[in-house]
């Protein structure tokens, strides 16, 4: 078992790494849009991909979610909520855009 001091240093480093990763991803995202480095379609995809990666960084480094076995119950809760969100939000978007498409 690690002593407290070493463990503290390790956890602080983990927060710092998460902070720097998230900062980098945000800056790249804003810079892409500010400088309009890519055509609009690619730009949008880029922003969404970077946003999604940043989401994972936040979950991993700030909320300490990972795939270790002892956290399985909580992971189940998270995955179930994700399923609900995908069904409800995704379903709303699909149905309404489909209607929009049919009415034009």
């Amino acid at each position: 078992m690690m002593d407290q001091q070493a463990q503290y240093a390790k956890e602080r480093r983990s927060y710092l790494v998460g902070f720097l990763l998230a900062l980098g991803l945000s800056v790249v995202s804003f810079a892409l849009v500010a400088a309009k480095l890519l055509p609009a379609d690619y730009l949008l995809t880029g922003v969404f991909v970077l946003g999604f990666v940043q989401l994972l960084v936040h979950f991993r480094f700030f909320l300490h979610i990972n795939f270790s076995k002892s956290k399985r119950d909580d992971l189940d809760l998270l995955l179930f909520s994700t399923l609900i969100i995908v069904l409800m939000a995704g379903g709303t978007l699909v149905v309404l855009f489909n209607l929009h498409h049919r009415m034009t």
Binding site: S26, S29, F30, V47, G51, Q54, L55, F59
Partner: peptide
């Protein structure tokens, strides 16, 4: 931390 995650969605 959760609120910051929501903000990532909002700015993107």
């Amino acid at each position: 931390h959760f609120l910051d995650i929501i903000w990532v969605g909002i700015f993107s």
